[in-house]
């Protein structure tokens, strides 16, 4: 498993030199939000098999 990957990412966000500690904290909060996977969902209509009903 990659070692300390989340900590590394978080530290990079905090120490990014853009002059605003507030922004860094906001970016960190954003990082902590679990990601949602972007699934492409194919719409499949239920197709009842042909037969006697």
């Amino acid at each position: 498993m990659p070692k300390n990957m989340l900590s590394q990412k978080a530290i990079e966000l905090v120490t990014a030199n853009d002059g605003s500690f507030g922004k860094a904290k906001a970016r960190l909060q954003e990082l902590l939000q679990p990601k949602n996977s972007e699934m492409s969902v194919k719409k499949v209509k239920w197709q009842p098999c042909k037969g006697d009903w």
Binding site: K3, N4, L6, S7, A10, V14, F21, Q29, L31
Partner: peptide, 23 residues
Amino acid sequence: YNNSRVHDLDAIITHEIAFNVAR
């Protein structure tokens, strides 16, 4: 960081250490 607290980082590094030790 620069003498300011970074509370979310406390959580991140503590949990990452715990996970690595658990493994």
